[in-house]
Each structure stands twice: as structure tokens, then as C-alpha cells.
Amino acid sequence: MVKVNGTELDIAGKTVAAYLKTTDYDPKRIAVERNGNIVFKSRYDVTVLEDGDSLEIVSFVGGG
């Protein structure tokens, strides 16, 4: 299982990019942390989620 923003999901084995495709997140508005480290944008499609990973997806909204 992979914890995504606090919720356990059965997505181990998928890449970050593949998981994001199953969500409503806009890839241009997010930052993704895996186990406390930023996942480089250029590595979403080669970063494979492992059992026990913790993923934190920050999705920005406009305004400032």
C-alpha cells in the first residue's frame, strides 16, 4: 500500500505519472513529495511507487 496525502491506496508498482493520470490533479499545478523528498518533475514517469511509500501531493490554487 502507498499512503497518498494520508490515505492508503493500492497503487504500489505504478509510476507517479501513471497514478496521477487516474486522478483529477493538474500536473502543471502540483508538487509531489515521496518519503519527504521532492519528486523531480522530469522523473514522474520513471519513479515507481513502492509498498510503504508515503506520497504528499500539493495542488496549488490561484491567488496572491
Binding site: A31, V58, F60, V61, G62
Partner: peptide, 13 residues
């Protein structure tokens, strides 16, 4: 301290 969500994400990343 940007306004647009895309710019915020660009800077954060």
C-alpha cells in the same frame, strides 16, 4: 508569493 497556480507550482518545484 505568485498569483497563478501554475507559477506557484513552477517555483515550488
Amino acid at each position: 508569493a505568485f498569483d497563478s497556480a501554475e507559477a506557484k507550482a513552477m517555483l515550488a518545484n
